[in-house]
Nucleic acid binder design. Structure first.
Lengths: 219, 219
DNA sequence: TTTTGTGAAGCGCTTCACAGCT
DNA sequence: AGCTGTGAAGCGCTTCACAAAA
């Protein structure tokens, strides 16, 4: 295989990382049932070759002597074996805090979906922000809400790393810059604009119209 | 270049299609200002080489004699020239209808963002569905709402092609199957499950936790 | 006998580098 | 002089095909 000739940290291709991410959810939902690469092909559409190759990247994250690192058996792969490896390979072990910026319809929807019974313990909804002091006082929320001007202070205080940007398009760039200045590491952007930010901030866009178009070009 | 040796329809790589989609939005926001490939590199992070290559795929969609098809000038590319070509290349000309299935917090947020002043005229919010008759009667909406059992009938009647699936995770697979049976062509799935559907239905997942993880692995 | 793990081949996107156009 | 358009080279992901393991 001979990866890692460049550095100590093995490099996993970006496409593989994305697939491992999805694979992890499938494995988590499979209980103790073993999954073969052929079965995963049925579930995902990825060729079984690709599946095996992807999983083989996890080899170096398995403990034990270099010989005892076989990941699958003749029954297929065991979820309980792979999931921890994927978490380690993708550095998903760390608990991360996130906030919601902009508490309109979409923002408050995500505010409430991220509550106690919300997503995994992996991500923790820590704060919500809105420009309207009134809205901040009235809205019910599982996490504390703050007026926008406290954004920098609160993000620093709690070590919030990720922001869901749900403000109107006109306000998005300015808000994103504030977030970047406050030290946020990643932004999930729901506003229909291309944000321009320094490269140390990761941005992922989730814009309805673009998603619809992406669907349309596949139909 | 020699594309199109396989069929009459030129094949544009999937990654290029995705970039052209984003590029279109940037161009639409640029007004009449010409954009050079170097400028687009600044805006997007894609290398100017890649930008020029991507745009070169549009050549065959330009009209006029085979010689007169130069897309850019010494000033760069003119948005007004490229945007129609991209629309044609990605088959985004057709007006498509979509619906929202599941009118919880998220569903009703999208219901109201897709209203008259909502997204482009390219996609038309045509209906909303929910299992709760009560909710269907009470909610305010820019599009007519129907109880879930009318799903098949309404989709067929209006020729709805796309669905935003906003139901709880437990109900997602069943709802998706109903949609597929009703002839829907694409599903934007917001429920945290991997849908299993016949291949003629395009699925795109937008799941908060996965988006957060995708961000996290880039941080 | 089924399924994994993996060199090696294949293939497609990206980058290079420069001719051509304005 | 500057920018596009594009053969050709480079490179990385995918697929093939088969040895090894259980």
């Amino acid at each position: 295989m001979d990866r890692g000739k460049d550095s100590i940290l093995e490099q996993i291709p970006a496409v593989t990382r994305e697939r491992l991410l999805q694979l992890m959810r499938i494995l988590e939902g499979a209980g103790s049932e073993h999954l073969s690469s052929a079965r995963i092909e049925e579930l995902t559409g990825w060729s079984s070759n690709t599946v095996r190759r992807d999983i083989s990247y996890l080899e170096s994250f398995a403990g034990g002597p270099p010989d005892e690192r076989r990941l699958g058996s003749v029954n297929g792969y065991a979820p309980a074996c792979l999931v921890p490896l994927i978490r380690r390979a993708l550095s998903l072990d760390k608990r991360r805090r996130y906030c919601v910026v902009g508490l309109g319809r979409l923002g408050s929807a995500y505010l409430n979906s991220g509550g106690p019974a919300g997503s995994s313990p992996e991500f923790e909804l820590t704060a919500g922000f809105d420009i309207s002091v009134n809205r901040v006082e009235i809205l019910k929320s599982p996490a504390p809400l703050y007026p926008a001007y406290k954004l920098g202070e609160v993000i620093a205080r709690f070590g919030i790393e990720i922001a869901l940007l749900c403000v109107p398009a006109e306000a998005a760039q300015a808000a994103a810059e504030k977030l970047a200045a406050a030290g946020i590491r990643g932004i999930l952007n729901f506003a229909p604009v291309a944000l321009m930010l320094p490269p140390q901030v990761a941005v992922r866009n989730v814009y309805l119209e673009e998603e619809l178009r992406a669907l349309a070009i596949r139909m």
